[in-house]
Design a protein around this nucleic acid. Structure first.
Lengths: 204, 204, 204, 204
DNA sequence: AATGAATGAGGTTTCATTCAT
DNA sequence: TATGAATGAAACCTCATTCAT
């Protein structure tokens, strides 16, 4: 009995937390982080000022939580390539880029904020983003190294430049087609083209 | 006589304006836009609070001016390719990217702010950035169109994706080597590699 | 049966009330009234916030109750002198002061708070303190009047001043030896000296 | 010219500071420190909230300043006794007590707050009060030592108790006649009686 | 009776901008 | 023109108290 009550309370609490997170996300994405006040957040969530602080420590902490969620979802979308896999390496890379793209498409508001103004917001936020960027570059350089070892990718090209270029191409595509773009594009198609571009370039 | 006085006053005025702009740029780049107060700016410039408002309308307007300066310098660095020119098209593109890169290297503090937190700061700032981005994409798509017309670049690839990828590759390189990087890299070398990557891809 | 249940509930209730009072006293004395929050009190008592309000009306009311307890204990320690008693008047006064001193020593935490910050806390608290102070002065002036009537104390001295001085001497001793002092002093010895001082002064 | 302007501004500034101090003192003494908000202070002073912070760091800092003022005035009123002086020692002590009393009478609102709620308000405030109390006791014990050396005061009495009792008598008199009392009493008369009490006691 | 989530008034402080000098 | 004191809206956050469960 008592347990039932406690459990239910727990669920309600969790639900309320999610609500505040969700409405805050919306408000942040509409107004931008710096132009959003705690007042805006609580008004949107329909709770009292104090209630906000019952669930979150501060404005930056709720943002950090939103960011952490996105990054962890993204980490799930990124997986290493496997030369012994049935699929070709190119197909595997296309699959990863597609998943990343889809993940971001499914989290457009959040993607929008993170891409627009996450940088320089807060020391902890910066640290998380830096860490994620390092992970991404590490993953990319590693993948490129495998490709080079297999004789698939050119040996003479600087790995750092290649990783940078690929990352930039993907990032810009996200900016153009997810953050700025109005209508949704087909993730797989974009991914295929970016990968084709990255592998074979533009020359005929 | 009076004219001399007026002229001199004009020069003094112009000089002071430049001073405030320069010190504000430094402070913004050190602390970030949102963490910088008018107090910080006037203290750094050594003028009174009121004086600041004699020269600039508001905190966001001085930032807008700094941004406008950078964008106009960048516009100068970007020039169209000319098929009838002596230099090869690739050489011309490398030259443009090199100039852009060098320009940003020479304006590191400003580049840093613009890349980190210019977005979402203010409607006018956003508009300027959007316009510039559109210009860049337009220039790129145009260049690609020329390349395709000459049979130099693949016909079957989506121009928008190509423009996006190239722009992203350059932007990321700026982020990595100018904004984040500690030591200065050789602009020409980076440009050559990005262009090589973009034209011929990574595959052997 | 039912009666037994009711009685037991009553006892539990009383016990819990005492618990909250006791832990609150400790917390108040450690942190001071104004630096103590209801959160501190309920955390220390191990009850829910709402429970606190089942037993006490407000933060100031629990303090008032603590104060009332101390004052009523103190009232018990103060008793009138009796000229027809076997003990000398001086001995009787020494006994009273000793008892007061001991009472306060036994309630150091409470004494500490009352002496430090009871004043200006709340209208009702102020009223209680005023009433007690008036009682004390009344008792003292009365005792002095008896002494004067018996020819024991000087006629020409202002009774109000004498009462004030004695009260102040005792109060300061409490401040120095109970509130501020680390180690416990012997109540009787202090009492004897204060009385000696008050009766015969410092001159040789 | 410029100097005149600067000087005048300085004076205005100083005047405004004094104004805020004076009205704050009044409000504190009327409502008590803890029941007074910055809003109360600025409303009473007729300045904007921000203006307050132009002159004072915080609520506790303005209180600290008021306290420091009173303590420094009091320090001026307390001076050592001099056995070789023409006036008798008793007369000298009476003079000191009178001056202290008068000083406090002239600063009734401030005296009221300090006596009522200065303790436990803030670490720095506590430190100042502690230091002053130690000074007072030191001065008193020293004076008593001189009296004992001259054979004027009893040797067998504990100096600490004597100092405590005298200090308490004076403090209580201040409480009764300055802090609580409605009409002003004659400082000299009270001082004479307290000193008489302290020197020769109450017995006939 | 007991709980603790929710409330919202009110706290202190900051800061972009104005304006009298 | 230059100054910097003054402004006051609005920021973030706390906490005594209430109330649905």
């Amino acid at each position: 009995m008592a347990d039932g009550r406690v459990l239910r309370a727990e669920r309600v609490r969790e639900r309320r937390r999610k609500d505040i997170l969700a409405t805050s996300l919306r408000v942040f994405s509409e107004q931008g982080y710096w132009n959003t006040s705690i007042t805006d957040l609580v008004r949107a969530a329909g709770v009292a000022r104090g209630t906000f602080y019952l669930y979150f420590e501060s404005k930056s902490s709720i943002f950090l939580e939103l960011l952490t969620n996105l990054l962890s979802t993204l980490r799930g979308a990124v997986s290493g390539v496997d030369p012994s896999h049935d699929d070709s390496l190119e197909e595997q890379v296309v699959a990863v880029v597609t998943r990343v793209f889809e993940t971001l498409q499914q989290n457009r508001p959040l993607t929008r904020i993170v891409f627009r103004e996450a940088v320089g917001l807060d020391a902890e936020v910066d640290a998380q983003l830096d860490a994620f960027n390092r992970e991404l570059r590490g993953y990319l350089e590693n993948t490129i190294a495998i490709g080079q070892a297999m004789g698939w990718l050119r040996e003479e090209m600087d790995r750092s430049i290649m990783a940078t270029s690929v990352l930039g191409a993907v990032r810009e595509a996200v900016l153009v087609y997810v953050v700025r773009g109005k209508e949704e594009v087909e993730a797989r198609k974009v991914a295929e083209q970016i990968v084709a571009f990255s592998l074979r370039g533009m020359t005929a």
